[in-house]
């Protein structure tokens, strides 16, 4: 049985009925549109105007204390592009976003498939996996800082010591520190995304698998022929959330490594907050925010295009 057949059958079963044309003419349409006004106003006041203001301030030497800032053109943008720490921050932010998105997606789908099976204590196990998503990332970062402590008394190093292995500088080596941040990010979010995938898995009709079994499909063929294609809407949502969340990550690396060693685990959001709040360089922080917004928009747009294409190919 091919994936195409299954998908078409699924589409036929789940495709919504053609929306009926709403009656009432232009008056009803106007009334309906009026209910969008508060939302539209909120969007304008909370998103459009702040974005415009941010762009304006990015062209000034605004300190955050006095509104009468001087116009300095693109000087803030030039400073950012020349600053090695900013570029390092951009590099790690991209690494974190891509790595966590990829690893969590693979792990969460695998986990969801297992959690979707019937076994004793299933709900408890689901809760256990979901739990790391509950505490704030800042608290998790502080806890994991002790686990990854480079001292012999660190949790992991004390286990290694019992095995006769010398202490490892988890947070004092550039590569290991980046690895540690990604590991904690994956650990914290995998369960949450597995629950998301589980919800989608439960909507796949059991009949598809029964038909596939009758046709002699192996479990692997069932996964790649039925499960994965029908999970693509969930993959789109999950990867979108992971990518946007990863790009704006701040609390976890800040609590776990403080952005170090050096600038190894510094993120763009950390740079924006430090420049804008601690350093009174709100103009610079605004420029960074503008560049970051453009980068995030481009990346997420590209990702959506990619996942939509994948969705069309699989379905």
């Amino acid at each position: 049985m091919s994936a195409i057949v299954v998908s078409k059958a699924h589409d036929a079963a789940t495709r919504p009925a053609k929306r009926r044309r709403s009656g009432g003419g232009w008056k009803q349409i106007a009334v309906n549109q009026a209910f969008l006004l508060p939302l539209g106003a909120a969007f304008v006041f909370l998103v459009v105007i702040p974005l415009g203001q941010t762009f304006y301030w990015s062209l000034t030497d605004f300190t955050g204390y006095d509104p009468d800032a001087s116009f300095i053109g693109l000087a803030n943008y030039a400073s950012i592009l020349k600053d090695p720490s900013m570029l390092a921050g951009l590099g790690f932010t991209l690494l974190y976003a891509v790595a966590t998105t990829a690893v969590i997606t693979v792990l969460a789908i695998s986990l969801a498939v297992q959690l979707n099976k019937v076994f004793a204590g299933r709900n408890f196990v689901r809760s256990v996996w979901f739990f790391p998503a509950v505490p704030s990332m800042a608290i998790l970062g502080l806890v994991w800082r002790y686990i990854f402590s480079p001292l012999e008394s660190g949790v992991i190093n004390s286990v290694l010591a019992k095995l006769g292995i010398a202490p490892v500088g988890w947070l004092s080596d550039d590569g290991l520190a980046r690895f540690a941040v990604v590991v904690v990010g994956v650990w914290a979010a995998t369960g949450w995304h597995a629950v998301l995938y589980t919800a989608y898995l439960q909507s796949i009709p059991e009949e598809y698998y029964e038909v596939a079994k009758i046709d002699g499909a192996s479990p692997r063929q069932q996964f790649f022929g039925i499960t994965l294609p029908l999970l693509t809407p969930a993959i789109v949502i999950s990867t979108f959330l992971l990518m946007t969340g990863g790009l704006k990550v701040f609390d976890l690396p800040y609590a776990l490594t403080g952005g170090g060693p050096g600038f190894a685990t510094q993120t763009i959001t950390q740079s924006i907050i430090i420049a804008g709040v601690s350093q009174g360089r709100s103009g610079m922080a605004s420029a960074l925010a503008v560049l970051f917004t453009i980068a995030v928009a481009a990346l997420t747009f590209g990702q959506l295009r990619l996942t939509r294409a994948l969705e069309r190919r699989l379905s």
Binding site: Y146, S149, P150, L151, S153, G169, S172, A177, P261
Partner: peptide, 19 residues
């Protein structure tokens, strides 16, 4: 002194001292 002090904070060092 170990170069691993890069991965330490004041509380970790205090814990080592009080232990």
């Amino acid at each position: 002194m170990t170069r691993d002090v890069v991965g330490l904070d004041g509380q970790m060092v205090l814990d080592e001292f009080t232990a």
